[in-house]
Computed example of a mutant assay.
Amino acid sequence: MVTPALIGVDWGSTSLRAFLLDADGSVLQEHAAAKGASTLHGHPAFVAALDEVAGAWRRAQPALPLLACGMVGSQHGWLDVPYVRTAAGAADLAAKLAQPSDTALHIVPGVLCDDGKLPPDVMRGEETQIVGALAQHPQLADSCIVLPGTHSKWTHVAQGAIVRFATHMTGELYAVLRQHSVLGRLMPPEVTPDAQAFLRGVAAARDHGDLGLPHQLFAVRSLGVTAQLPHAALAEYLSGLLIGHELRAGLAWRAAHGLREQPLALVGAAPLCERYQLALGHFGQPAHLVLDNTAPAGLLALARAARLLS
């Protein structure tokens, strides 16, 4: 019989996922709830949400350690856990775990990148995914790891530690433009997959990105108004244009930090990583490795580094 070793929690702004993990990192059970950190207010609400997804496991095995990552540790979460400054490896993160009062829960800190030259950058949750990716694939100890999402992260990892990163608000910008701008008026409510339209947007950013994103965005409307793209394809063109601009900047950032010859990895939800891989291929620089959710592996590695496991 497999023995559980850890309850790991990936607690984002809008969602909550709990994993019952064994000592090898296998997910024995998983529970989820729409109880994101930004939707809850006050200590009792967080306690109740945690009990909803992990209470049965805790009552069955009260000695199991409990570790969470993500926005639960932000200013708008359960407990504001101070950031760890770069360079930050698993040991640095494990040394700064924090606990809400009167709970058994430990929360992973986020990471702050601030060199005093550029505006600061921060991450919460992605650091745990990176730790998990490194635990599963040690060859990424010196690499560029990209985590696509609402706020995509381009991360420079050296000697197993996060040394710098750059955030792109690609996913959020896509949602805002679709829902709250003139560009969305021509788009049907539902998005129809269209790889050709997506890659046309990627190519526009790749080949003519020097025209500037604000200028190129208006083409999403003008292509529809002039019937050069069907209305059903405009959302995919917009997605390609935004991701293309992110890749144009991100790949230049990667080269500027001497990472061109180091592995390039994608970590995140499979459909989104597939989209990024398609776009990277259009740039002639596909990722060497594409990984699904690595948060459970990261939580286990951090629990082990913090000596929470029996």
Rank of each mutant, 00 (worst) to 15 (best):
M1T: 15
M1V: 13
I7Q: 08
D10A: 03
W11I: 13
S13L: 05
S13Y: 03
T14C: 10
S15H: 14
F19H: 13
L20V: 08
L21Q: 06
A23M: 07
D24T: 13
G25N: 11
E30Y: 00
E30V: 15
A34Q: 07
G36M: 05
L40H: 02
L40N: 08
H41F: 05
H43P: 02
P44G: 06
F46Y: 09
V47G: 03
A48Y: 01
L50C: 08
D51N: 12
L64Y: 07
L66E: 07
G70E: 12
H76E: 14
L79C: 09
D80M: 14
D80I: 07
V81F: 10
A87K: 01
A88W: 05
A90V: 15
A91M: 15
L93S: 11
L93M: 12
A95L: 11
K96H: 15
K96S: 15
K96N: 15
P100T: 13
T103I: 11
A104C: 05
A104S: 04
G110N: 01
C113T: 00
D114L: 03
P119K: 02
P119A: 05
P120E: 10
D121F: 06
R124C: 07
E127C: 09
I130Q: 04
G132S: 05
A133T: 07
L134E: 14
L134K: 06
A135C: 09
H137C: 09
L140W: 11
D142H: 12
V146P: 03
L147T: 01
T150D: 06
H151Q: 04
K153M: 11
A158H: 01
Q159W: 09
G160A: 10
A161R: 14
I162V: 13
H168Y: 09
M169N: 03
G171P: 01
V176P: 00
V176Y: 05
R178L: 15
S181Y: 04
V182E: 10
L183S: 08
R185F: 14
P188I: 03
E190T: 13
T192Y: 00
T192C: 09
T192E: 12
F198T: 04
R200D: 13
A205N: 07
A205S: 06
G209F: 02
L211Q: 02
G212C: 07
L217F: 08
L217H: 04
A219Q: 05
S222C: 12
S222L: 09
V225L: 15
V225C: 02
A227F: 01
Q228F: 08
P230Q: 10
H231F: 00
A233Y: 06
A233W: 02
A235V: 02
A235N: 06
E236L: 04
E236W: 01
Y237D: 03
L241C: 01
I243K: 01
E246S: 00
R248P: 09
G258D: 11
L264D: 12
L266G: 08
P271M: 08
C273V: 09
Y276N: 03
L278Y: 04
G281C: 09
H282S: 14
H282L: 11
G284E: 15
P286C: 07
A287E: 12
L291A: 04
L291E: 11
T294N: 01
A295D: 00
G298W: 06
G298C: 07
L299M: 08
L300H: 04
L302G: 06
A305M: 10
A305K: 02
L308A: 06
